[in-house]
Computed example of a mutant assay.
Amino acid sequence: MSTLVLIPARMASTRLPGKPLADIAGMPMIVHVARRAAETGLGRVVVATDTDEIAQAVEAHGFEAVMTRADHETGSDRIFEALTTLDPQGKVEIIVNIQGDLPTLDPGIAAAALRPFGDRQVDIATLGVEIVREEEKTNPAVVKIVGSPLSPSRMRALYFTRSTAPWGEGPLYHHVGLYAYRRAALERFVALAPSALERREKLEQLRALEAGMRIDVEIVDAVPLGVDTPEDLERARTILSN
């Protein structure tokens, strides 16, 4: 399948303004993410942005950038505009959305997101990891997956929530916000209005589930560090400097 890897990036972060260009071990964070994305070997890698400075930084390090509108509400809307610009003839079959704040992403983990597409019924694929730290089980910032197991390493997502779920004995799974879409699924998704549960939980993926789309989750071994705060940025600098 023809695959395009898109990395949405914007400067308007409320908790860490300008974070795509934050220096980590001598390079902007967005360049680290582009390098990791290229190492997956999945296909063409492009940063989708609304900021000239981000595009210039990406291109200065040998990667590709595409400009998008500044008024997109979600990363999915941004990557869909990028897709239509980069591939107007519709040749790309799979679109991988890697967040621009994952500088420590393991390329092997990213590649695992495509495995569920062996089943033609899957519209969207994403990643999860078992929660091992007790404090994360009740942390609303750690999004949990409620799903039906399909194999030891895969589940069909039934719901995503910031609450502690499901109830009872057994593992809990942390959702890793990296998505792969079939082209038709992405086109359908961005045409849908935000759903009631999406607005309530503030989780975009619930829009797809409420519309009857199928999301399968590949279980991996580690969560990449998402850089959302100054403390996260310092952790990323420590990891990548070593």
Results as ranks from 00 to 15, higher is better:
S76E: 09
H72D: 10
D119P: 13
T126P: 10
D119F: 14
T84G: 03
L127C: 11
I131H: 11
G108R: 15
R69A: 07
K91W: 05
L114I: 02
F117L: 09
A82H: 01
L114K: 00
A110Q: 02
I131P: 05
P116T: 03
F117V: 06
V92C: 07
A82F: 00
G100A: 08
E81S: 06
R69H: 08
Q121C: 00
H72L: 06
G100K: 12
H72T: 04
D71S: 12
T104D: 04
G75E: 12
L114E: 03
A82S: 02
R69M: 03
G108M: 12
E134C: 01
Q89W: 07
I124C: 12
R115S: 02
T74H: 11
A70F: 04
R120M: 04
R78M: 09
V122W: 13
A110M: 06
L102R: 04
Q99M: 14
I94Q: 15
V132C: 02
D87N: 11
R115Y: 03
E136Q: 09
L127R: 13
H72F: 14
R133V: 07
E136S: 10
V122H: 10
D106I: 05
A110N: 01
L83Y: 13
E73C: 06
I98Q: 14
R78F: 00
T85A: 10
Q121M: 02
R69F: 01
G108H: 14
V92A: 12
E135L: 13
D77L: 14
E135R: 14
A113N: 07
T138K: 06
D77S: 14
Q99P: 10
L83I: 09
E73N: 06
T74F: 08
V132S: 08
G108T: 11
D106L: 05
T104P: 10
E130D: 08
T85E: 08
P88Q: 04
N97C: 15
